[in-house]
Design a protein around this nucleic acid. Structure first.
Lengths: 348, 348
DNA sequence: CCATGTCATGTAACCGATTACAGGAAGCCG
DNA sequence: CGGCTTCCTGTAATCGGTTACATGACATGG
């Protein structure tokens, strides 16, 4: 049995295909008896419009695509969740393509999505992807997240990594720490660079000396980097890690070295992944509302798509960079509060 | 500037649309000079076939849908990653819809996907979703994951929760533990029930008494449940938790109670989420190759789709239930190995 | 009573691909 | 050179929606 078409529905309801279409799309007016006859027929045949045919005549797909790099588990799922919620609310669908670790890979994914989505959200921690995207996009609306945005013309969103890092380091200074070290992420990663820059700014403002160690955004690399720092003759009294995974590695290294956190060395991370509040001591870190970011990204892309469809010239208005400001979450690892809190890590 | 169509390409290349189509789809034969002229024109116009038009004439979308409940971060992202890899390898796309916590919600998502996907993968921890799916699916190929599969006719995949739990508990018995308790997941959850059943089986085989506590698959609930168990007059010497999140809560409760793991109480979890090897002591747990499961699910769905397209009667062959057998990963928390391992938690 | 406007509905063109079938060029053989 | 393949290419029908425009019914006002 073939699937029912709009003509089958029209025939069964005793009306024309135009009326059926009007009822289903909500466009135009239909008299009440017609409407109910149509709905009845739709129900009886369990008719579902053929999305391809619809997209052919409307030249919209009602689908938006997301291109993702290889991401940490929690970040990925939170982001998708937020996007999904926003899409569902707008009657859109989400098509994802993940694990694009290099630019060429991402480019291929973008190409394969063209023609099947109304717009794209591209997460690109690679510096060169700004140009890459614009060169590939043709006239497909694109929203860049956490990327370079080299030309400043693409609509984009990004976390204020520099500012967040500065806040973290200033917080440590305000608690009396003086020898504050930084464990940075991979050099090729834009976010890693920005966080390092924020650290350097804050240290410079305080008139202190920077102490740097290189990591890879992984727990193991944080452990190794911290081990190097602890062995140096000028041992730091605080470590600001480029992300939470490395911060947890730092905590373990401190523990393994027989030192105490926060008494001997304070630690601050970045991202506020769920594990941050579960480790002991609880990790002070910068919180980002990841799901909210995802939701916001979808909303912005949709207005961009609408603008493009309307050919409106004020599209330039939307071509702004939106900044997400992370919020410092103070737990035990920074030493600000010495009270030992009981376990209360409810996780939904 | 409108997007180029196949006719634009044909005109520029000086050939017919049929030839262009043949080059792009790979169907039929084309002479070499024609092929290269076409590819050149495609390149010049940066032509991308209109997926809607294509799906209209081929009645395929090359997209598969995934319906997901609210999942834990790591599980979700690993699963999607595996599916995504498999899809890409087969030239398919993945459309996701997550956070469907109840059956009605999932049903709505399934309906909204009909007509825009070639098949569906439905993750449903709800007991009633087997019928739900079959009633909604019409003639859309569906693969059920971790669901009830009440009628046994749907192709499906599931983890051997019962068997895995039994292995875990038997392992504890083999280490000399005798008073083994279980912290179970929510009663409405099928997987929670199966794991509990495996625990009960193993305990019965050993002629021991079951000790049960109720949790919610969250870390906090595991903490609370363990606290209750530790306060009882017959304190257990081992706790098998229904998943890793609860197991971590159990570890914290033991620590907070001034007891030692594994010396006083051994702990075993289920799932082997990344955090399992990072907590101290390292958590002994049952490993599931989540990404592999996702990949396999896509592959099975694709063969199901092919069978449906070919109208082949041996489709019944595929309507089997495939079982994923979890593997016990022994770390420190069960007390099997007393050697303290250094930190080596490399995480890609 | 006729001209005119309003409103609901129907007819048919169109979106952009695929592909069955027709047709033409070239090659081969007798 | 004629007839027959063989091989490639082009024409046009088709998929299932949407929607501009035509149509017809009915009400209203002069």
């Amino acid at each position: 049995m073939k699937a029912a078409t709009i003509r089958d529905v029209a025939e069964r309801a005793g009306v024309s295909v135009a009326s059926v279409s009007r009822v289903l799309t909500g466009a135009g007016v239909v008299a009440e008896p017609t409407r109910s006859k149509v709905l009845e027929a739709v129900e009886a045949l369990s008719y579902v419009p053929h999305s391809g045919a619809r997209s052919l005549s409307t030249s919209r797909t009602d689908v938006i695509g997301v291109i993702l790099p290889d991401l940490f588990g929690e970040f990925f799922s939170e982001l998708i969740r937020g996007m999904d919620v926003a899409c569902r609310a707008q009657g859109r669908h989400l098509i994802v393509s993940s694990s694009h670790d290099d630019a060429a890979n991402a480019a291929a994914a973008i190409r394969s999505m063209r023609g099947r989505v109304d717009g794209l959200i591209v997460l690109s921690p690679h510096l060169d992807s700004g140009e890459l995207t614009s060169s590939l996009s043709g006239r497909l609306p694109v929203l860049l997240m956490n990327g370079g945005d080299l030309d400043g013309q693409q609509p984009s969103m990004a976390v204020d990594n520099t500012g967040g890092a500065r806040v973290a380091v200033e917080h440590l200074f305000s608690l009396g720490r003086r020898r504050i070290a930084h464990v940075g992420g991979p050099t090729g990663n834009l976010e890693a660079r920005q966080r390092k820059q924020g650290y350097l700014d804050a240290v410079a403002s305080a008139g202190a000396q920077p102490m740097l160690a290189q990591g890879e955004f992984t727990q193991a690399s944080g452990f190794a980097a911290a081990a190097r720092l602890l062995a140096s003759d000028q041992r730091p009294d605080a470590i600001f890690a480029g992300n939470d995974a490395m911060a947890v590695g730092v905590l373990l290294a401190i523990q393994e070295a027989g030192l105490r956190c926060p008494e001997d060395i304070a630690v601050v991370g970045f991202d506020d992944v769920p594990i941050a509040e579960l480790v002991r001591p609880g990790l002070t870190t910068l919180h980002i509302d990841i799901a909210g970011m995802g939701r916001r990204a979808v909303e912005r892309l949709l207005t961009e798509i609408d603008d493009a469809a309307a050919n409106s010239p004020q599209a330039a208005n939307d071509a702004a960079r939106e900044i997400i400001v992370p919020r410092l979450v103070v737990r035990q690892s920074c030493g600000a509060s010495t009270s030992t809190q009981g376990f209360s890590g409810e996780r939904p």
